[in-house]
Design a binder for these strands. Structure first.
Lengths: 196, 196
DNA sequence: AGACAGCTTGGCAGTGACTGACAGGTTGGC
DNA sequence: GCCAACCTGTCAGTCACTGCCAAGCTGTCT
């Protein structure tokens, strides 16, 4: 059972990785919108139906690993020592994401550029990020000494949303600078201006 | 020429308003996803083709007036006296949006709930909001005494993105509270926690 | 008044993302 | 070798959305 599961799982992982690879290549060659799912399927050697079974949507071809990164983020923030300020804990979460990424920096830049220059991808990205924010609410509420109600607390939401906003701004600027600027430094600048 | 233009324009406005009305009714009755554009078209008495000419996308049936509100926002922020702090100027912009809305509070709540509970609508909403943010960059840069480069400044981006983040958080909480809470108060709470 | 130009509208056919149903093949447990 | 669980491909269909073309309405010019 376990062996079989892992065998299926392994071949599945390999297939997924290869499909993502060919898809990204096509997207960069001819653009995201101009590339059809049928094209990706035939070039990757799978049927269109299976392609949609692996990735529920076309956007997931680019954003598929976001879910896993979200769990990394929440876990890392929750694991920070209580002495750390809320801001530092959140920042530690995002550095954990950077460390958990299994792409080369060059690849990350390509994907980020693709996301930020394609409307539907950017939308999808923001939606996933919104789910991360909601998952963080109880963690941050506890850290700020707020008892969790059925509706999130405005202060916790504000802090979380602000952190994401600055991370986003830094990421977008990093892409606009062609990856030459230090994204971390941009984030610090943005947040410092906010909290000044 | 002018008369005829305004005549066309007026009948167009009336048609648009009526279409939006029937669309929102359908969306509330049977849900956004479950309602097809063909249904909206036939119930509104226009062809499907014309419906897509009025509203380029299904989401625009709900978010169509966002563009106009964006201009109101940018204009209001730019019109604030220089003595006002950046934060106060941005807040004034959002109160201007509230004042410019031509819907009843009940209607605003319904639309907001629809947007926040429907993934595709929320995505579209965020995308439009992102465009507002970009439009605000030069205005805020000038107000913060930053010379505009070809790439936005991280500090200006951070302040703008944070303001939007807190407005969003407040709006979402306002919807979650069923419109009973004071959205403005929620915004103040969120921003105060951020800048504490 | 009547021809003309500009603009709008509707019908039609097509594309592309996505889904459900069905049939066949593969894998692992007995 | 058999059975059950699972995966895969094919097909047909839905729905948002678009280009194309013909028909209609409006105001203008002669």
């Amino acid at each position: 059972m376990e062996k079989s599961a892992s065998l299926w799982e392994r071949s599945r992982q390999a297939a997924v990785a290869e499909i993502v690879d060919t898809a990204l290549t096509l997207f960069e060659e001819q653009g995201y919108e101009a590339t059809t799912m049928a094209q990706v399927a035939s070039k990757a050697g799978v049927s269109q139906r299976s392609l949609f079974r692996y990735f529920g949507t076309k956007e997931d071809l680019v954003c598929s690993d976001q879910d896993a990164l979200g769990e990394v983020l929440v876990g890392a923030v929750a694991a920070q020592p209580a002495e750390l300020s809320t801001w530092d804990a959140l920042r530690a979460g995002f550095t954990a994401i950077l460390a958990a990424s299994n792409h080369t920096p060059q690849r990350v830049l390509e994907i980020s550029r693709l996301i930020f220059t394609t409307a539907s991808l950017r939308s999808r990205y923001f939606e996933k990020r919104l789910r991360w924010q909601h998952a963080l609410v109880p963690v941050i509420e506890q850290r700020m000494g707020i008892e969790s109600g059925e509706v999130p607390d405005a202060r916790a939401m504000g802090v979380i949303a602000t952190t994401f906003a600055c991370v986003d701004a830094a990421t977008e600027l990093w892409v606009l600078h062609g990856g030459k600027a230090d994204a971390f430094e941009l984030y610090e600048q943005a947040l410092a201006a906010v909290r000044a």
